[in-house]
Amino acid sequence: MIELIDVHKSFGEQHVLRGMSFTLEQGQTLVVLGRSGTGKSVTLKHVVGLLQPDSGQVIVNGVDVASADAEGLREIRRQVAYLFQTGALVNWLSVRDNVALPLVERRDMPSEEIRERVDESLGSLDMLQHADKMPANISGGMRKRAALARVLVQEPDAILYDEPTAGLDPIMGRTVGRLIQEVQSSGERAAIVVTHDMDLAFQVGTEIALHYEGQLVERAPPEVFEQSSHPVIREFLRTRERPGKASP
């Protein structure tokens, strides 16, 4: 469903993606680990066409993202939803209006159906009682849940999670992990979870890979990934064994 073929991307002198290639099928949850600033989010932005590769191809459901026209890109973005690190809710709209936004913008859905789907989506994430609050008046964890509700209401085929537990306390981080597990439990959706939270990686991933020097390396199921001898992976794994004592 999602395929990257030898994608290269540079920002000035910085060569961020150096032949990035991978495929993702429905039902798979691929966790991408990597240190900050290695280009994990850049990879995700290529999938939804927010960035164009310097060379290489990004294919979503058989369509080349770079050469898709406006309608094609719109269709790709309906199929693949993106959960941003900060939630990226529109600040002057209530939680309910934020969640309804993608449906309202389609302009072909009756308002009653929109309301039903929004309530269902908010309810599934235990956010219905906060529906009329403004994003500024809810906690970071609630904002993440509201953003996830906005993603789910679109009923996408795949979800890209960009640092879903960043800025959350460990308990809320585990809650977000459980939500992702629930969302993926149907086995019908593909997901890429970009993170450097090892607990989350092992909680939700059907496969884990390391984003290293502009490529995905050591992609494997969690139990195999855990045995990797790659020095960066070993360093990540040590943070899991001794939380708070990670190497700088």
């Binding site: 993106y82 690190q85 990226a88 936004l101 913008e105």
Partner: peptide, 11 residues
């Protein structure tokens, strides 16, 4: 990233 988010929602 709110502008990016709007684009991802095809807005």
């Amino acid at each position: 990233e709110e502008i990016d988010a709007l684009e991802c929602l095809s807005i």
